[in-house]
């Protein structure tokens, strides 16, 4: 018996988009939470790359980022910390040490994350390292200068270690 088509109007085929939108919004929220947004504290540079084994995962607690701003031919354009730029001169390094000392007075357990370009010359980075010990001395108290050399690894590793380091001449 043939079907009477007038009793069965053509069905409207519709795709229910609500679950897809739900899943898409969940994915967006997930990536927004887990991805690290562009950090204004971190200057754009090519960090030194080291083999895995000795470096540790970056700790975000009680730290200040000190950027050695790279320039051409291994020179630098100064030091940047918390939005302030310090010249690569003895006066600029002295002002950097004073700013660091103020931070040490507020938080004696402060760690300084030193970020420098891989092609920068050591002559410009050593004053920044020395400024941390000078700042701890200016701050007084029991401030123990903690310096973290920020690097990138070729492969992920969970191992880490701590070294006692000094700057300056031979002991």
């Amino acid at each position: 018996m043939p079907r009477d088509r007038s009793k069965f109007p053509p069905a409207a085929i519709e795709a229910n988009l609500t679950p897809m939108i739900d899943v898409t919004f969940l994915l967006i929220v997930f990536f927004a939470l887990v991805s690290r947004m562009s950090d204004s504290e971190r200057a754009d540079m090519d960090l030194a790359s080291v083999p895995p084994g000795a470096s540790a995962q970056a700790d975000e607690d009680s730290r200040v980022i000190l950027n050695v701003i790279p320039a051409s031919d291994g020179a630098i354009g100064g030091y940047r910390m918390q939005g302030s730029v310090f010249d690569a001169t003895p006066d600029g390094v002295a002002r950097l040490a004073e700013s660091l000392a103020e931070l040490y007075r507020r938080n004696p357990n402060l760690a300084v994350n030193l970020r420098a370009d891989r092609s920068s010359m050591y002559r410009w980075i050593e004053p920044a390292m020395r400024a941390t010990t000078t700042a701890a001395m200016l701050a007084g108290g029991d401030a123990l200068p903690r310096l973290n050399l920020v690097v990138v690894e070729d492969a992920p590793s969970t191992a880490g270690s701590t070294a006692t380091s000094t700057t300056g001449g031979a002991r």
Binding site: T24, L27, I28, F31, A32, V34, S35, R36, L47, V50, A54, S55, A56, Q57, A58, D59, N113, R115, M129, T132, T133, T134, A136, M137, D142, A143, L144, P145, R146, L147, N148, L149, V150, V151, V152, E153, P156, G160, S161, T162, A163, T164, S165, T166, T167
Partner: peptide, 26 residues
Amino acid sequence: LLIYFLLTAGLVAKERNLRAEMPPET
């Protein structure tokens, strides 16, 4: 938005630290 986060999430290199404890220079 989804494509933006997918592309930018994997491009940020994971930074790691070489820790050093400087001696107190009193």
